[in-house]
Design a binder for these strands. Sequence first.
DNA 1: GTCAAAAGTACCAGCGCTGTCAAATGAAAA
DNA 2: TTTTCATTTGACAGCGCTGGTACTTTTGAC
Lengths: 338, 338
Amino acid sequence: MPARIEDVAAHAGVSTKTVSRVLNGHTTVRVKLRTRIEASIRTLNYVPNPSARSLAGNRSYLVALLYDNPAAGSSYVMELIVGVLQACKETPYNAVLHPFEATEDLVAKIDGFVAQHRPDALILAPPHANNAKLLQRLDELELRYATISSKSRQSPIDISFDERKAAADIVGHLISLGHRRIGHVAGLKGHGAHAWRLSGYRDALRKAGIAYDESLVIPGDFTFASGMAGAKALLNRRHPPTAIFAANDDMACGVMREGYERGLAVPGDLSVCGFDDTPVALLVSPGLTTVHQPCREMGRMAVESVLQSIREPDLQRHTRAPYEMRLRASTAAPAKKR
Amino acid sequence: MPARIEDVAAHAGVSTKTVSRVLNGHTTVRVKLRTRIEASIRTLNYVPNPSARSLAGNRSYLVALLYDNPAAGSSYVMELIVGVLQACKETPYNAVLHPFEATEDLVAKIDGFVAQHRPDALILAPPHANNAKLLQRLDELELRYATISSKSRQSPIDISFDERKAAADIVGHLISLGHRRIGHVAGLKGHGAHAWRLSGYRDALRKAGIAYDESLVIPGDFTFASGMAGAKALLNRRHPPTAIFAANDDMACGVMREGYERGLAVPGDLSVCGFDDTPVALLVSPGLTTVHQPCREMGRMAVESVLQSIREPDLQRHTRAPYEMRLRASTAAPAKKR
DNA sequence: GTCAAAAGTACCAGCGCTGTCAAATGAAAA
DNA sequence: TTTTCATTTGACAGCGCTGGTACTTTTGAC
């Protein structure tokens, strides 16, 4: 039978209430006493019973991570999860992972979830971070939440990185290599990742004085198949692009596949770059030039911020995580012939 | 404020205890009454408070998934997680994910984890499934657990699939294409996945009457880099193999990269196959021939079995999940010239 | 040395549920 | 019909902790 708070109190010669104060970080305990109590806790290997804590304190010590359908098996989400779990480990909080599809009955579903788990805070991964109805419901339920890469300014706490600038950087890199006709396979409309990355693409073209050609932008949906389809459309043009910027790595892989099917050399005949730097970027050959999105870091930050906001309800914070270009072998100067 | 069991009892005109019986699936409630209570539960949108339940019932309704260092960002684990979460959703149980490194202080670490979360059951992913010390400690703590792909017969509940046969199948496929000199980049020693896949490789050779040549087997560690290194060693031979079987997909990608660096065509000059069918197998070009390991399904099964074993403590069950070959474009008949 | 503020104690209710065990019920037996 | 006994239901304590109130002790400023 594990030790109880009572045992610790007896061991340290104090009241249970004082032990409780120490456990909960209340500042009204003198250092000397606190030290003694902490020693007793360690000696007895005491760990508070989370259920009793939750029940009495009306808190669950749970942070829920809401992400979209995992069927995609998206490594983006995996990385987020890793970050969230890491961050939780350093706190008394625990993570609940919840794949969540925002269908018609969103409100009922979220209510059910909240009723069942009673999380103290939520973290919304894209695209939920942009779902106004969802955010509204959470506000009504007076739940704290953090969003990741939210488009809307509604969210009090948001962790993002400058996707627009990152996209501009990577397209700028293609331009600096000498590319002038650059295709773009865009993401799913409605996702922030669609708009920002497209804007960045346009920014880079503008900066280089290259006219924007709408027909060089093909809509995609972040899947490998849509990347292939996008590449097919672009490469079937009379003047195909010499480089393609895909709005994520999976689509970039699709582009590379289409190139492969046609016997085009990457990067010799076609430069390809992606976005996100998911693990696959390292595994494909040639290695994929992409932008490293600090998913783990963002997961961590989301947890930290949202927990802080429990203590400071007025907290507003829009954090921008740093990103990095990862220049690998899938991009090079265009072939001489043109 | 959400409904409490008391509210349901009042609404249905019974005692709280009877409601509790219905909630916990006790069979000693008359059908008529049970129906009435279930109706009340639905009307009031009642969901039991998990903390109160745990506290009173001395159960946590938690299933812990112990997996190895997630730094690898392994999609194997991701798939397992998805399966485990799915399975939990249909039960009152929740999953706790716990990346866990089995270092020296394993016992202390596992004790700490158990003290903190008090899971009712554990699921051990490889390589923990083979860690005798860990299993022993769990036995001492009288915790129920299921292992996934455990080598040892110690585990009462294990979910696996016939890796040896699967490996033999895929190497058999290479042989049937006409390959005779087939290299193998093996996994990390100690992992079941190392021994089984190597045995399968040998089985297939034996069956085809091809002599086993130890020098064609290069040790690896399941990483991309070790796959590259293994391929390097194999391709530097005076008579390089015409096909390489890597013990997992990441290493197969490393093999493909090494081929790419040398200007070898896959599958024209070198056939490559992997194992696991992680998402990357679909993303690389050419698509990777591999064995589909039903990770999700195995995660689900592990949860189901281990929960069943809570009700039936004597339960022993070694389940074999079905696997499938995924023949893609990375394998073909060897070049004519030899 | 005085006194207010801070730090700590003692005590108890109660969070929402389940386990124990006794009471009520109902069907079969007498 | 009454008795018997298994089945079904209920009353109540208590799981381990925190919040609150009321009170005592310590601290440090003057």
